[in-house]
Amino acid sequence: MSWSSLLSLIVNGVVVGSVYSMVALGFVVIYKTTRVINFAQGELLLVGAYVCFALTVSYQLPFWVSFLMTGVFCGTLGYIIERVVLRRVVGDPIVSVIMITLGLSIVLRAIVGAVFGVNSQVIPSPIPDGAIMVGGVPVSYQYLFSMAFSLVAMIAFGAFFRWTRLGLAMRATATDQQAAMAMGIDVGRIFAVSWAIACVVSAVGGVLLATISGVNLGVSHFGLKVFPAVILGGLDSIVGAAVGGVLIGVIENVADGMFKSLLDIDGFRDVAAFALLVVVLMVRPYGLFGQRAIERI
């Protein structure tokens, strides 16, 4: 395999991986604050992508306007989902909560299918065509844009959790809900906000994906790819989600290309991520960036 084809595999991997990162970030935000494992994360991406598509294509709104509106819509949706559905199962056994999110994923996918149809859709990108050469490989502006955008989003979220009052309250709630309550934090509101945030970042991922390669209902399997990404990065780490997502994207792309050209085996893509996951969990059970519980001795 030549150097340039490897490089282009990597670049592709980073781009797909940055979408994984966004979805993983949403997953981590929900898990961190509410300890809910959200199986509907991929469907939230789907909703975001289709809503943005509808706004840009059917209603002919400028891309950035519809992008913003999608964000608002999905934030509201997340807030409502938490208030209406998940609030009722707070404190219930983990299995019931998982069932709820699985059910949610089915419902969301069905609704999207019913409203927008099942055809593959591409959102016309606001980024001009063209490419720059990196090490002899062309990288399109579109790709650069998605990478940069994900990076900015990640940094923004990192800053949000580190410095803002609400972000701090979310971290406190993640550490100890009852103690957070005793500090005067309205924990219910924190839960709802974390769902809203999770929906927004997933939607951003969805829109990025839709401008690059288009979306169809099958894209919701991105939600599954989130598991290797977040577990690789550690379930409770924002940085971990970002790095894990990109890493999974690169690894599966490169592994897929390698297996295809060297061994003539097709479709290794979907296995690679999970194979890696098993290895990582054997070496570092709390993930690469996950926090070990602090124990004073």
């Binding site: 701090l168 971290r171 993640a174 550490t175 103690a179 957070a180 602090i294």
Partner: peptide
């Protein structure tokens, strides 16, 4: 106390 937060962040949460 919130174990993963710093001392100062803990105080800030107290004044939430």
């Amino acid at each position: 106390i919130f174990q993963d937060l710093t001392v100062e962040e803990n105080l800030r949460i107290g004044g939430y």
